[in-house]
Amino acid sequence: MASTIRVRATSSGDTTEVQALIQHPMDSGFVKDAKGEIIPPHFIQQLTFEHDGKSVFVANWGTAVSKDPYVKFSFKGGNKGDDLKISWVDNKGASDTTTAKIL
């Protein structure tokens, strides 16, 4: 199956800009389905970005992050061709990991 994680990491000067989009329902637990039953909360809790063995960004998320969540940040360092490791874990214990090349 295709990865749930899409990443664009581009290095420019001494800064690497990272954008990520993740396929996840991010159900809040406050919405009812067509039958009127509450859709249980199902959301990513933590998303981490690692470069060169250390974390450069950690997102802690609640249920108010939009479906198919998006985040953008930048960090100093990171060269073209370097690996950026991205992983998430959700409230049901599901997880996914991918490694992207910095462009």
Partner: peptide, 30 residues
Amino acid sequence: LVSENPNALAASYQIPPGTVPAVANRLKMA
């Protein structure tokens, strides 16, 4: 944080040294 949401805290990001203190994201608002 979104004051009027059922739970106010939406997202919290850790910024290690060397990471630029700027972030963009998309949130739900009730």
